[in-house]
Design a binder for these strands. Sequence first.
DNA 1: TGCTATAGATGAGTAGAACTCATTCATGAA
DNA 2: TTCATGAATGAGTTCTACTCATCTATAGCA
Lengths: 301, 301
Amino acid sequence: MNHRRLPSLSSLRAFEAAARHESAKQAAQELSVTPTAISHQVRGLEEALGVSLFVRKPRQLKLTPQGRELQQVLETAFDSISHFVERLSAVPVRQTVTLSTTPAVAVRWLLPWVCLLRDSHPGIDLRIHASHEPVALDGVTADIAIRYGDGRWPGLIAEKLFENTFIPACSPHLDLHDAAQLSAHSLIHFRIAGAVSSPLDWVAWQKLAKVPGLDVSAGLVFTDETHAVSAAVGEQGVALMSRQLINDELVQGRLMQPFGPSLEGKPFFLVYPESRQQDPTIRAIREWVMSVPSGMSALSK
Amino acid sequence: MNHRRLPSLSSLRAFEAAARHESAKQAAQELSVTPTAISHQVRGLEEALGVSLFVRKPRQLKLTPQGRELQQVLETAFDSISHFVERLSAVPVRQTVTLSTTPAVAVRWLLPWVCLLRDSHPGIDLRIHASHEPVALDGVTADIAIRYGDGRWPGLIAEKLFENTFIPACSPHLDLHDAAQLSAHSLIHFRIAGAVSSPLDWVAWQKLAKVPGLDVSAGLVFTDETHAVSAAVGEQGVALMSRQLINDELVQGRLMQPFGPSLEGKPFFLVYPESRQQDPTIRAIREWVMSVPSGMSALSK
DNA sequence: TGCTATAGATGAGTAGAACTCATTCATGAA
DNA sequence: TTCATGAATGAGTTCTACTCATCTATAGCA
């Protein structure tokens, strides 16, 4: 259908209304224009088509047979479009949005607040894509992300959420106060499967802390950060983890930071494509994420 | 359906083409606009509807499920309109046109040329409404007229066709040369039924000619002008009739004007509503009428 | 790996279609 | 006869639809 011929759609609309009413005045009212506009449009359409659509009488319009036929075709067409458009608006379409983040952020930071999003935006179907690697925000794999980094991603808008400070953390029951005591306890490692090392593990910490005689290769290894947290809470040893993600445990006294130093990791950002900045769904998610309490955000308020 | 909601029809058209191709570039080519125009229109539509219709990738557009649905509704609607419009143009619709004129003009002047109109405009169905009284050119009773008058009819366009000169006419066999001989012959009257007198009858002629002893009330009376002509040709007497309508007989010598004076009647005009000046059918009839040879027209050429 | 071509998006500016205003005309009703 | 009503015409104005310039992110090729 590459050679579809369509006259001015505005004139078709004006004609259809005038034909239905057989009145330019009523058509004008329906379309919120002046009767003159209707008159012009109808005339333009007749000229474009080369046929008469109305028989004109003073103060009266009568449809020609062709005019009547065209009105019926147009009414059907416009009605089908209008019905669909109204259906689109009337049914709150559940917008599926995929948020990509790390497993720890997902579990420890976001999930507790998902009910809040559901309450405020029942039309949003939030799906969380948890992985350690950043994924494409292409609207297919994911739409929006919470990820750590330097905040500079081409084509993406990045809004800082919170810092990512790695601290030694253990249960208060271990009665640890000095780094020198570390040798007597297990180190709890969190290591991404397949990764050899990380700038934020015990090796890096030891380089900074320089605890004499400490063997940082030993200890418990978990591939799931939340398991590492559980082990620490369960007095299995000392874990090095993001303070912002164990804020609850710190506040509740289930975990403590026995000593320093801290390692500053790259902060977490909310990230989404610039092209979707005005997307109502993206905006809604953004607002929700911004309302989630975080260590730094709560402090700055 | 008074509350029909329709977004910008232009944006709907642009979207449908872009959706069908899943390419703004190809849609632009189809609609003979720039790709930018497509981009703007699609974006406007998405904002108006509040939903995303495309998933955007660099150099690529992918339809959302909603976008796909809308495209299908629109394709059906636009196709139905387009098909009807093309049908309207492709089938030469027979346009019925009613031409109002006097019986004499119809029979003696127009009918011989109807075949010419049919040849040049097979789509025009010409109907002739013959009557002595002018009728409304309202598109119902009649569309166009040939009528005599002063050429000034409100709202109507009047184009002069030919004069209307009333002359005494009789067969050459009567061997009449002088008005004084009239008493020895019958006067042939043409009188419209119900009409008492006319400014163009024998009474009016006698007032001008002042033929001694001539009784103009006597003679043969016909209600049909063509019958009066036949009677004159058949040597029944002398008729007073429009020279332009008996031109053939004059030229062929079946009738002659034996003496004066002539009475100048109001000329005949082609008359049609100003509002239909651009009507293709009216224009076609006009051209045809103007091409019919008439006494005065032929002489001026 | 770097360069070029390609296709879509954004924003400012422009053109033309859509519309308004003023006026005229032809009823129809009081 | 006068006034109200509704459609049409033409000139002028507004606003939507469009273009141009520019940018971005690939995709393909050398």
